[in-house]
């Protein structure tokens, strides 16, 4: 792995664990596979691999070489901008899957792919917002949601069902994150961030059906 990346992967994992008040899990860096190592497994590009044999669950995180290279040259913890936003989101999405799958396995819960994608979209937004807040004196641009949820492109060829799932997850996350932004991130009262964490932790622990209902119940 290119030097700054183990630190960045672990940093994103620990941030997510802290945000959602999760027990510290094994470092994601122990589960990273190179593209060559993952060639025998299904799918392509950056992805999280899950194998299951009875109670034994195996996880692997694959990140494309281009993502590594881009982030190695432009560490988002120093400066996150349009140049490295896409690669940072890819990395965050895979770490999010890893953390959420770990959490579900620990709590003996099964998870659907839509639920995984939806949570990853929310994680992507919150991780990015917090990083940008640190770098921009607490300012949150409404444009960020547009960039994350409306101007994305799906990198590898996907089946129609996969495309539909990504679109659904993105649209749902957009609605939920719009709510978080307007309710907790506009204005400067610090207590709002605590409320945001409380809400995000509650949401994280909901199953798919409850997550969808939570979003459906949000005011338009």
């Amino acid at each position: 792995m290119t030097p700054p990346l183990p630190g960045l992967l672990l940093d994103v994992q620990r941030r997510l664990e802290a945000l959602y008040a999760l027990e510290t899990q094994a470092p994601v860096t122990d589960f990273v596979l190179t593209e060559e190592e993952a060639a025998a497994y299904p799918g392509g590009g950056s992805r999280t691999l899950v194998t299951q044999d009875g109670d034994q669950v195996g996880l692997g995180v694959v990140l494309e070489r281009e993502t590594f290279a881009l982030l190695a040259g432009a560490d988002p913890r120093v400066r996150l901008d349009q140049g490295n936003l896409g690669a940072f989101c890819t990395l965050t999405e895979e770490v999010s899957h890893f953390v959420y799958l770990h959490f579900c396995a620990r709590t003996s819960r099964s998870v659907t792919q839509l639920e995984l994608e939806l949570q990853a979209e929310v994680d992507k937004y919150l991780t990015t917002v917090f990083l940008l807040c640190l770098q921009n004196d607490g300012a949150v641009s409404a444009r960020l949601r547009d960039l994350l949820f409306h101007r994305y492109r799906l990198a590898v060829p996907l089946s129609a069902e996969q495309v539909e799932r990504y679109r659904a997850a993105s649209a749902l996350a957009y609605r939920y994150c719009s709510h978080l932004e307007s309710r907790y991130l506009r204005g400067s009262r610090p207590s709002r961030l605590e409320d945001l964490a409380r809400e995000a932790r509650r949401f994280y622990r909901l199953g798919q059906r409850e997550k969808l209902e939570r979003i459906a119940d949000l005011p338009s």
Binding site: V50, Q52, D55, S110, T112, L114, L116
Partner: peptide
């Protein structure tokens, strides 16, 4: 053993929604 990632087809999704 619990299946960690479960498949959810449109039929299953709509059956759940309809029953609800």
């Amino acid at each position: 053993a619990l299946k960690l990632v479960r498949e959810e087809s449109p039929m299953e999704f709509f059956r759940e929604q309809l029953e609800r």
